[in-house]
Design a protein around this nucleic acid. Structure first.
Length: 376
RNA sequence: GUGGGUGUAGCUCAGCUGGUUAGAGUACCAGGUUGUGGCCCUGGGGGUCAUCGGUUCGAAACCGAUCACCCACC
């Protein structure tokens, strides 16, 4: 399903087949948590900004509108009229970041909904059943994402339990497929590596989950409190232990600089709320670095957000106009800013892919990393 | 016209019986935000305390006059 077509150092240029089309990697997945891109973008807009894979969230869609409704409308693809690949996050992260009163046991997690406070239980089987109803092409394992730093003993306990949960996820998906009641018969399960910032736990866990021979692997539990240098150190430990013929997904990362560094370390898939969230706050990406469009100096600026950008927004609107929309709290301002930032990220990935194909990724990395992230 | 009330940051208001450099919220200016609660956090600039005079060692505060606005009654 995953085919490497070119490498440049550790950077990989690949093609990944899903039940809803082919993905050119490295790729950035566009985040539509509740089956919608925040800021008012729909499936047509996703095409316009160059999105290849849409990412939705199990926890949020389980709470509202509920997976049965989504399934009855043809899964996420039919529900939101997106015919491309979809990945669903398992809800593990949200159970720990949003829900209150949670209690973790070997079975799973009991918690209160952040919407109405009602008691909910979610374990590996529940998460997979929900994701099956959502009909995503890639279902993620139900895991616990511990904050960094956390005590070694707890991280060890947690990531061993997450491994057992992964086995249960795999078995549940097999049962559902065997029963023949799938919204998406081509749905696959990816495993997630955990282990905090411990190289030993990370390596042991990666070896264990690699042995399960899953169609894809993610590195989770990063960008959750540790320094950027620690994050790169952990990737450097885990990546050599990941099966080379399977896609690698660095969850929740990151800045353009983080992504370039991730690609340089052999990562193929990324997702992050940052471009959309920053867009909503008027922080926009340009070829020369990030600008804050709320700044007064742009109040009468006739230039587009990024003068060298080819996105639909930059071809049409001035900084002054988009800034005004943001200040006036017009929803159009959010929409235009999100479109620009997502286009920027998707375009960055296209440039990365071309650079790898042309064997000049190293130069590309040197040239742009510093502009995108001063911490590099 | 008579009686009462209110004037403090762009806006809404705190500021006790007089006591260091007059505060808050909001707005404004600028940072932050990594498997998304359009949220939140952090810093900054900004005031002849309506005006004029008086009492006092010391007044945004007490007294008087003036001006503006509000309410009630004529």
């Amino acid at each position: 399903m995953f085919k490497l077509i070119e490498t440049d150092g550790r950077a990989r240029r690949g093609i990944f087949e899903t039940a809803h089309g082919t993905v050119q990697t490295p790729v950035f997945m566009n985040v539509g948590t509740k089956a919608a891109i925040k800021g008012g973008l729909d499936a047509f807009d996703l095409k316009a900004v160059g999105c290849q894979v849409e990412l939705s969230n199990t926890y949020h869609l389980h709470l509202r509108p509920g997976e049965d409704i989504v399934a009855s409308l043809g899964g996420l693809h039919g529900f939101m009229n997106w015919d491309g690949p979809v990945l669903t996050d398992s809800g593990g992260f949200q159970v720990f970041s949003l829900a209150t009163l949670r209690k973790i046991t070997e079975e799973g997690v009991s918690f209160s909904s952040h919407i109405d406070g009602r008691k909910i239980f979610m374990g590996p089987e529940e998460s997979i059943r929900i994701q099956s109803s959502l009909g995503s092409d890639i279902a993620m394992a139900f895991d616990e994402c511990v904050q960094n730093p956390s005590p070694y003993e707890y991280v060890k306990l947690s990531c061993e339990r997450t491994y057992r949960w992964l086995v249960r996820c795999r078995d549940e998906l097999s049962r559902i497929k065997a029963a023949g009641r799938c919204v998406n018969p081509g749905q696959m399960l990816w495993g997630i590596n955990q282990g905090g910032v411990s190289e030993e736990l990370r390596a042991d866990n990666m070896k264990a989950i690699a042995a399960l021979d899953l169609p894809g692997y993610a590195i989770g539990g990063l960008a959750v409190g540790e320094s950027t240098e620690e994050m790169y150190r952990i990737i450097d430990v885990v990546e050599p232990l990941m099966p080379p013929d399977r896609p690698r997904y660095l969850m929740g990362v990151g800045t353009p600089g983080n992504i370039i560094e991730g690609v340089a370390r052999g990562i193929d898939f990324f997702d992050c709320v940052l471009p959309a969230r920053n867009a909503r706050h008027g922080h926009l990406y340009t070829r020369e670095g990030r600008i804050n469009l709320n700044n007064q100096k742009y109040a009468a600026d006739p230039l587009p957000i990024d003068p060298v950008c080819g996105c639909p927004v930059c071809r049409t609107h001035s900084r002054a106009y988009v800034r005004h929309l943001l200040r006036a709290e017009e929803v159009l301002g959010l929409r235009l800013c999100v479109m620009h930032n997502l286009w920027f990220y998707n375009n960055l990935m296209a440039e990365i892919r071309t650079a790898i194909e042309e064997n000049r990724f190293c130069r590309f990395r040197e040239e742009y990393s510093e502009k995108f992230d001063k911490r590099l």
